[in-house]
Each structure stands twice: as C-alpha cells, then as structure tokens.
Write a protein that binds this DNA or RNA. Structure first.
Length: 935
RNA sequence: GCCGGGGUGGCGAAAUUGGUAGACGCACGGGACUUAAAAUCCCGAGGGCAUUAACCUGCCCGUGUCGGUUCGAGUCCGACCCUCGGUACCA
C-alpha cells in the first residue's frame, strides 16, 4: 500500500489527537486569557442525552453531527462558538437497573457516561469537553436545588405578571392589603381563617399558610396521577392518552395526594405571548399553545330552583345563553348530593357508581354519551327560564367548573345528548343558507324543528331568537353578542368574563431515589423550612435497597424511597428544633430546565452562572441554535421556558426566552422483521425474495420504525466508523436527506459518499508518490465560474442547514476535477475549507499537505467574488409560446436586442416562426427568451 | 373531529424571486482492470410515440387529483384526495 492511499483511520486518529492537544474547540469566556470582546458569540446546543446503557445507534448522532457542522462553520465565520455537551442522568432506567441488579445508580450512570463519551468522541464532534457535566453531579444539582428555592421563595404578582421575592408579598400583607376585596391578592380559594384577621395578628403557622398559598413552589393536596406500578406519581405530561405511564406502561389512577407543585399556570399568558419572540418551528409553537389551551369566555351561575345552591358553569359562547335548554354536571361534581331530588336519588347513585367503575376501564375513543336527570331545575339568569339539571359522563370535572350549560342547537355533544334523551333544542344563531340546503330544510323548519336534523352546526355568526324585554341579541354578530351578554351578567351580578386554560400546575415530586432531593425541611408541626443556601447541596443518602414500595391496591399511600434512608440523613436539627427532610425527589425534567445556563459558566462555585458570562453568551436571543427531537415540544421546552421566566423576573438571566432558534431533527428509521410468532429476527440476515422477505428460509414481515437493540435492527456508529471512517459516517448521515426529516437508514448506500472522499483524495494527492497535486495557478474560465457558483450556493445551504444539498454541490465540483493533472490553488483551498465542517479530518490532512502549518479550524470561510459568477458566454433557452425550441449561446454582456437577434437567427427557431407574427418578447437575462407568437 | 407538516423516477432526494424538472447519490444495465471475486474506475438511463439497420433526430406526456392566474406553474390561488405527526367529550 502506498502512502498516498487515503488511510482514513490513521488520518482521523491524528487529527482527533491534534484537536485534543491544542484544545482547538475551547470556547473563551469573558475574563479568560485571550478572550476577544469584539468577537461575536454563537451558542449552539444539543438537547443533552440520557446516558443509557444500551449504547448509541446510528440514529442518535444525527443531531449532534448537524450542530457540529454549524459550530465548525460559525468558527470559520469568525464567531466565538459555545458548543457544549453534557448528560441528563437522573431518572428511572438507572434506578430500575439498580432494582434488578443491586448496582447503585451512581455506578451505572458513571459507566454509561464513560461509554457514551467514547462513542461521541469517535464521531469527531467539536465540543468544548472542559464544560461537560452531568445533572447528577452534586456540583450541578446544588444549583438545581438553589433554583428550586428561588421558586419556593417567590410569588407571582398578577398585576405586573411577574415573579417577585416572597418578602415583597410579606410587606404587602403586613400593610393588610389582602383583605381588601378589590385587591389583586384576594383569591377565592384562600383558607377562610386567614381572612378573619390582619396578617400581622396571625400566629406564625397561619402566616406560613398564607405565604404557602402564593409561592411558586407549593405543597397541595390535589388529584394526581398515581402510578402504583412505578410507586410514584406522574405529571400530566408523563401519562399517555390510554391512561398509562409513559415509562413502563403501567396503569395510572387519579387520586388526591399531597405533592409539590410548581405554579406554571401563572405564566400561561407569557408562555403563549413570548412564542412570538422566538424562531421556532410553527408546529412546536402550535403544540405549546394547544397544550396551554387558552380560551376566552364567561363564568356564570345558575340558581338551582328551590334551594340556596347555584351551579357555576364556564362557556366560550355566552352569546348562545338563550339557547341553553338544559344543564349538565360531572358525575363527580361536589354539589351533586345537595341538588339531587329524593325521587331521582336512587337512579343518580346508580349512575355514579357505574361511572366510577367504568372510568378507568372505559375505552378512550368511546364517545357515546349517557347521563341521568337529577330531578332538579336551574334558572337561566338571562330569561328566568326553568331548565332541567342532568349529570352525564361527557362533562369532566377537570375542566372549567365541572358543569356546563347545554346549548344543543350549537354544540355537537349537547346535540347528541339532547337527541338521545329527547331534550328540547333551541336554535339562537342564524344558519347559513348553503348549510340549510345541504341539510335539505328551509330556515323556518330548522328553527322550529332542529331535532329533525342529523347534526348541529356552530360556525354561524349572527344571533337570532335571542331576546327578552331587558336584552336582545338579535342581528348582532357573535363577538358583539358575547360582550353584550357578559355586560349583562356583570350588571346582574351572576357572572363575568373569564379566561380558562387547559394547562395545570406542574406536579413536581416523585417518590423515587435517583433524582434531586428537595432542599426543604418539615417541622414537627408541619411547618416548612427552606434549607440554608450555604448547606447546599443536599446530597442523596446512601441506599442499598432501591425497590419502590410497589402496591397492588390503588388507594395505598405512596412511600417515598428516601424514607428508607438512615435516620441521620432524614432528621436535621436547626436552631434547636428538629426537622425531617423532604423525602420526595424532583422529576427527571428538573435538571434539564437550566443546563444551558450552566454551560455558560460550568465551574462557577459562587453562583449558578456568572453574570458576565451569562450576559455574554445569552446576548439578545439566548441559545442561538437549539437542536433536538420534536418529542420535547411540550415537556422539556415548556418547563425550561417557565424556569427561565422566573429567573428573568429575578434579573438572574438577561433574556425573556432561553432558546432563540429551535430546530427539530428527524429520526433515522430502520426496517425491522418479525417471524410468524411475532419474534424479531436480525435485520441483517433477512433476504429479499420474489415472494417477500425471508429469514432462514421462512417468511417474515417487514415494518418501518425506530432503530433499537430489541428490534434487532440496531447499527452502532462504531461499526460504520471502523469500516468507512468518521468523515464518511458524518457525511453520509447528512447526505441521507434534510436534517429535519425522518429517513430510512441504508448501510449499502454509504459507499456513495465514501467514493466521493476517495475521489477527492485522489484529486489532491498523487497515488504514485503521495505528492500534493495542487497547482500554484488559479483556475480560469468555466471552472472558475463553477467554483464561485458553488461557494455561493453552498454558503446559502450552510446557513439554512441544508447539508445534503451542500454536499451534492461539492460532489459536482469535485467531479469536474477528475482527470485534471493539477488542481488550481483557489479551487483546492475553497473545496477543502467548505468541506471541513462536514468532513473535518480529511480536510485537515489535505490542508496540511497543501503546505499549511496549522489546523484550518479557524480559517475563514471562502468568499464569493461576484465578478466570477458569470462565464464569458452563457447558454440561454429560446421558448416559443412557453415551449423550449432551441438553445443559443450568447456573450454574457449581450443586450436584449442582441439576444433577440441571435435567437431569431437560430435555424430551429426560424422553422417555428414561419407564418407567425411575434406579439411579445419576454427576456429573462442569463436564462431564456420567450417569443409569444400568433399564427 | 380539530391543529400542524408532507405528496417529485425503482429508492434517498435537487430545482434562486414562477423560467430547460429529476442536479447529486443508491440500486440497475453495459464496459475496463483481474485467473476469478471483491474493491476501484469509465459509460448509460423519467415514460411513451415516430423515424432509423444503427447512431442521430423529432414529437407528445410527465412533480397526488381537478380547476384557475400567467407568455410560462413542482413553485402562486381555489376545491378535493392520500399520508405522517400532535391533540381530543376542553364546554
């Protein structure tokens, strides 16, 4: 083998060692030696991984390679680039493994991180490894705990819509603002005892209770998702639509428990509004908006006839109040027992019993509605009409007030229910003429007998049938009518306008071991006490038995694992008082809520991030590019934005939003094969035959999906890198298709880009004697034009992260060089520099062989010279009536008149022009001339 | 149902502001090198029709479907079909 052959393994090893030795990718912080404040910054971040024990497959590095290319590209453009990597290592898998094997999660985590680091380093990624940390490092979670305390010591001022220190609230309470009913502090769910006396006169326990009521982190006894199979409670976001746990697929039950909550709902409006500030995919913005689920409407009360009770309802269509012909409350509504009549008591109780029994078993796509009459009647506050009160399974206690006014004429669900139980239907919005004709009725028939139709429609917008002596909505638009009704409700003191959200406060505690302990102490009297900042971190106690108390009964109380910790850890004495530590741990999401900030200043032991570093790296938009999977659209990304906003309100971070630009990479998919028994067979050994797919002579079925060890279709990056080299691997991952798209892995196709790199090498290095074939001469003519056009398009593609298209351009250029005995210097330089972000090792080697002494890491990206963009002559198309008829070659400088003349002289053109007159000539410079003719 | 993406050869995909559709790569076919194979390299190709011994050449049809705007539409507008993702008795 001659030394001229491209020996990728040797070359790649050489340059990896070089970069490591020279710390080529170290990002300099303000204050560091050599830091240049004039250099613009660029922060490019990956969603950091969970260090799983299974090892990476070729799908994992896709996003990392993309960000690495951006990072290398931006360095060449002269940016100070922050490109860090870390590990999100708290969470269930390590703990489950500990249960099975007895290995402490810390050991497992450490081992997995080591493995993953090695695999990542094989990919030639240009991270600043000095900034790497794991969320499980006490030096890191110390600050996670600190931020939790910041939340705990904050309240949300609804007037200014921002988080403020709790001391600020105490000052206000001491001035006794809270008992004033016009004060924004008054809250209807306030414990009644605190309203009786001024705050100052309350004992310290009651004062605490008041404060706890306002904190951004608070304990509450609420209905939570209790998963006995995992021995823990879960956030709404962690429960699937089937009512099972996202991890482990265990059944989840609703039950009230006392848990830590974070008041994310207070930030709902800002979380929606500030989406306008960021450059994110519309799909993700939309998902967040849907998740928050803001709706505008009205809350109003219906008196229950013959009692002093009234039922509150929420509606987004107050304009249809005249059309309310019955009421429905949820079967688990707290007022139910007080309004049901004696005669109906038995059938209502039967229904409730049935409802409860079937609630967890009920199929989620079952939309049939059933209900029962309570015997009670409500009074419609707008017209005094008496309407029956029902309970039904289609009204949920968890949204709005748990009761609705039913307007069957304009709501599909109410309509179905009304038809089933023969309740009256009253249209109050004028229907559309076209809709009526589709239904085959005239307006009069519809208004008098709406029950004859098969559906109800709600998108019309002029009220009708809506009037009584005091109030008429007839002929008003929906918007006008809504406002008029709300004004009326306020005037009658039975309701008001209201905004509802689907978003619930974030359930923040778990009964597991492998998570951040809460820095909270519980006094013997139930008082909460924050751990002193100087006592952080609260490290996890040693434990040998990690089995959760898995309980068969769904109503058994959860037992936090930290309850098994030694007495000496659990019990603390402060100022002579004895306290027990909080035994819950934080959920997996906690660590990932702020890691992007720690990367800016990872070794700071004074603060969670130094102010100067934070301001420099945040700049105007925070993280400049954040790349990760779309699966985090509502979980991590919503939580992190929430924490960021709290930190922003405390002036601890300088941007409103953490991630200026978000990019969702696609997934790498692979075929998996199952035999008749449904067992997965190794995808590698499956043969394609004329009948289909076969494994060991037996037919198997093919399915396209994720890659994974259990599916026996996993391919490790190591195997690919060993065989083709890291540059080929990186190039191939990018060449497979657009980064944001999912694509199917096909190992066979990898030879394409591998051939390209070999061809590139041969173009540059003489295969006989290994000398460099780059000439001192510059290119000229068409090659020069092609070069500058390539630089132009490739630069555009790099900006748009369309690496597949960029690679194709460079392959084309390289193909032009095949057969040349020497490569012009300017072409060679530009070629190597442009390819360097994607295939850095081979480019470094070629760069050195071209006579450069140092790494090309910070060499400037090639510039386009517009004067070379056009060749001396250019081929243009001659069209006649839009159809291509001929090509003519014209000088670049030619005027339109010249072009027309040349076009007319063309033989093929004259043939078509016979017997026609030219009506119009359209000339697109450099491209075509279109002759519009009439015969 | 609602919201948001996406439909281009056998496959992955390209196509500036509307301007020669299918660049580039895989697979395929042919060839070179080789005792042979692998690897490597070179050449070919959207579909159809006409013409020809063959090359050449000419014409028509082609970007999910139908319609519109335009000299000209993958690109813009309208309706529909299919598909992927999110979400769902949210009042």
């Amino acid at each position: 083998m001659s030394s001229a052959t491209y020996e990728f393994l040797k070359v790649e090893e050489k340059w990896k060692a070089y970069w490591e030795k020279h710390k080529s990718f170290k990002a300099l912080n303000p204050g560091d030696h050599g830091f240049d404040p004039k250099m613009p910054k660029y922060y490019v971040l990956d969603m950091f991984p969970y260090p799983s024990g299974k090892g990476l497959h070729v799908g994992h590095p896709l996003g990392y390679i993309a960000t690495d290319i951006v990072a290398r590209y931006k360095r060449m453009l002269g940016f100070n680039v922050l490109h860090p990597m870390g590990f999100d290592a708290f969470g269930l898998p390590a703990e489950q493994y500990a249960i099975e094997t007895g290995t402490h999660p810390e050991i497992t985590t450490h081992k997995n991180i080591e493995n993953m680091l090695a695999q990542l380093k094989d990919c030639g990624l240009s991270y600043d490894w000095d900034r790497t940390f794991s969320t499980t490092d006490p030096d890191y979670y110390r600050w996670t705990q600190w931020i939790f305390l910041t939340l705990f010591q904050s309240w949300f001022d609804p007037k200014e819509k921002k988080a403020k220190p709790i001391e600020d609230l105490i000052r206000r309470l001491e001035s006794d603002q809270y008992r004033d009913h016009n004060s924004e502090l008054v809250d209807s769910t306030h414990p009644s005892f605190v309203k009786a006396k001024p705050y100052k006169e309350l004992d310290s326990k009651d004062q605490q209770a008041v404060l706890d009521h306002y904190r951004l982190a608070y304990l509450a006894s609420i209905n939570v998702n209790w998963c006995p199979g995992l021995g823990t409670v879960l956030a709404n976001e962690e429960v699937t639509v089937d009512g099972r746990s996202e991890r482990g697929n265990f059944p989840v039950y609703q039950r009230p428990l006392k848990q830590w909550m974070l008041r994310i709902t207070a930030f709902a409006d800002r979380l929606i509004d500030d989406l306008d500030l960021v450059d994110w995919p519309d799909a993700v913005k939309q998902m967040q908006k849907n998740w928050i689920g803001k709706s505008q409407g009205a809350r109003l009360a219906f008196e229950v006839e013959g009692t002093d009770q009234s039922i509150e309802v929420y509606t987004t269509r107050p304009d249809t109040l005249f059309g309310a012909t019955f009421m429905v409350m949820a079967p688990d509504h707290p007022l139910l027992s007080q309004v049901v009549t004696q005669q109906q008591k038995e059938s209502v109780e039967d229904f409730v019993r049935q409802f409860k029994a079937s609630a967890s078993a009920k199929r989620f796509d079952d939309k049939t509605k059933s209900g029962v009459f309570t015997g009670a009647y409500c009074i419609n506050p707008i017209n005094g009409q008496k309407i029956p009160l029902w309970i039904a399974d289609y009204v949920l206690m968890s949204y709005g007030t748990g009761a609705i006014m039913a307007v069957p004429a304009h709501d599909q669900r109410d309509f179905e229910f009304a038809k089933k139980y023969e309740l009256s239907i009253k249209p109050v919005v004028k229907p559309d003429a076209q809709w009526l004709s589709e239904q085959g009725v005239d307006e009069l028939t519809y208004l008098q007998h709406p029950e004859k139709l098969s559906n109800a429609y709600t998108e019309w917008n002029v009220s009708c049938n809506s009037s009584q002596s005091e109030l008429s909505l007839n002929d008003l638009s929906t918007e006008q009518a809504k406002q008029k009704v709300i004004d009326f409700l306020i005037q009658k003191q039975v309701g008001h306008g209201e905004i509802q959200y689907k978003l619930r406060d974030w359930l923040f505690s778990r009964q597991r071991y492998w998570g951040e302990p809460f820095p909270i102490l519980h006094g013997t009297d139930g008082q909460l006490r924050a751990v002193k900042e100087s006592d952080l971190p609260i490290t996890l106690p040693p434990l040998t038995d990690f089995r959760p108390q898995v309980l068969d009964q769904e109503d058994a109380d959860p037992l936090p694992l930290l309850g098994k910790a030694d007495q000496s850890w659990r019990m603390v004495e402060v100022e002579g008082q004895s306290y027990e530590r909080e035994l819950n741990t934080m959920p997996q999401w906690a660590g990932s809520c702020w890691y992007y900030l720690r990367f800016m200043d990872p070794h700071n032991d004074k603060v969670f991030v130094g102010k100067e570093s934070e301001q420099y790296w945040s700049g105007k938009h925070g993280v400049d590019l954040y790349v990760g999977g779309v699966e985090h659209a509502v979980l991590h990304l919503l939580y992190a934005r929430f924490w960021h906003k709290v930190l922003f309100d405390h002036k601890l971070v300088s941007t409103k939003e953490p991630f200026g630009k978000l990019f969702n990479q696609g997934y790498i998919q692979a075929y998996s094969y199952q035999d008749e028994r449904g067992m997965y067979v190794p995808a590698d050994d499956v043969k394609t035959t004329e009948h289909g797919f076969e494994y060991q002579g037996k037919p198997v079925t093919r399915h396209l999906g994720k890659m994974g060890k259990s599916l026996k279709n996993s391919i490790a990056p190591d195997e690919v890198i060993e065989k083709y080299g890291c540059d080929t691997f990186r190039l191939y991952e990018m060449y497979l298709g657009p980064v944001e798209q999912s694509k199917v892995w096909d190992t066979d196709a990898i030879v394409g880009v591998h051939r390209f790199l070999n061809r590139l090498w041969r173009n540059f290095v003489d295969h006989e004697n290994g000398t460099c074939l780059v000439d001192a001469q510059e290119s000229s003519g068409k090659l020069k034009t092609l070069l500058h056009q390539t630089i132009k398009t490739v630069t555009e593609y790099m900006e748009q992260m369309r690496f597949n298209a960029a690679i194709a351009q460079m392959i084309t250029l390289n193909n032009e060089l095949v057969g040349l005995s020497f490569i012009p210097k300017d072409v060679a330089q530009a070629m190597v520099l442009m390819l360097a972000p994607m295939a850095p090792h081979i480019c470094e080697e070629l760069w050195q062989r071209m006579g450069n002494q140092d790494s090309l890491t910070r060499y400037p990206w090639p510039q386009v010279n517009p004067q070379y963009l056009k060749a001396d002559t250019v081929e243009i198309v001659v069209q006649i009536n839009g159809k291509r008829r001929a090509n003519v070659s014209i000088p670049t400088q030619a005027t339109q008149a010249d072009v027309e003349k040349l076009a007319m002289e063309n033989e093929a053109v004259t043939k078509y022009l016979q017997g026609s007159t030219i009506v119009k000539v359209i000339y697109v410079p450099g491209r075509l001339v279109n002759l519009v003719v009439r015969t």
